[in-house]
Write a protein that binds this DNA or RNA. Structure first.
Lengths: 144, 144
DNA sequence: CATTTATGTAACCAAAATGGTTACCAAACT
DNA sequence: AGTTTGGTAACCATTTTGGTTACATAAATG
């Protein structure tokens, strides 16, 4: 995980859009729920737009809506949409190529980390935004 | 993954100690293989010491050695030793508790992220430092 | 058609994390 | 004693991150 809250906030956004489904929701309203600045929300929504997880509508009475059913959006989709390309913790790792160990360990480590990342994403794929929303309703049935 | 190279460098260190097993290796020699500063290496070794994955010996002819067989050190052990407590990407995530969504999503998300992290660690647990070293020897059999 | 409301983005700032470096103390061997 | 090496604090530069202001664009409404 990249040490930021992009993923967590993005799931919050999509869950909120599920909660308020049917209407166009402004970034300001979402920002109030997340307790941050609307621009921060729109930045994340830009990434979700690129992956076609949400739709945007400009102008008065505009806002954001889910582009498909929340049961068809997995946490893995969200992770891939908003998380920068997984450097897998090898950002500043450039060992001495003249050393027998340094020369080849990069590829070996990259393979191990790729497998670990795949395992994490597979677990994320098992939960959808609809699942998160359902859990929310279960503990807090004060809707509608 | 926390966006740093602590884990990658730590595996490099332990693999190097495996490669040169039997002797006490100085942080300077390891730093040469990793191509960084000896202090950076000692900082990571301090974390590995705390988990008793290596032993240290001060003074002339001192250095570091593996504390146990490399087949008994998994990448998961290394990950846990050097990676700071997994905030799981919820560092700055403090949603509005007055919102029905904000109030409960933290716990739900934390559970999902904990499972994802566990899946990743389970995959890391399947590879040992000895495995990494063996793969190294397979592609680069220029030792001894 | 002007006004209002909202997205889309650039620009900038502050705070935090990270890696690199120097410096210095403590310990152990010769 | 003197040399070598770990242990650690202190400091700096770079990068990342989230927050904020500002402004252009687009759509609805009167």
């Amino acid at each position: 995980m990249a040490g930021n809250s992009r993923f967590a906030v993005s799931v919050h956004i999509l869950t909120y859009l599920t909660y308020r489904r049917g209407a166009a929701i402004s970034s300001a309203e979402i920002a109030s729920s997340v307790d941050t600045n609307p621009v921060v929300i729109r930045r994340l929504l830009a990434a979700l737009l690129k992956e076609k997880l949400v739709t945007a509508q400009k102008g008065a009475a505009g806002g954001f809506e889910l582009a498909k059913g929340p049961e068809r959006i997995s946490l893995r989709d969200v992770y891939r949409a908003v998380e920068p390309s997984p450097d897998c913790g090898m950002r500043h790792f450039a060992p001495n190529q003249d050393c027998p160990v340094g020369a080849k360990i990069e590829a070996i480590l990259a393979a191990a980390l790729t497998k670990a990342q795949a395992a994490m994403e597979a677990e994320l794929a098992r939960t959808s935004v609809a699942d998160v929303h359902a859990q929310l309703q279960a503990v807090c049935p004060n809707k509608k």
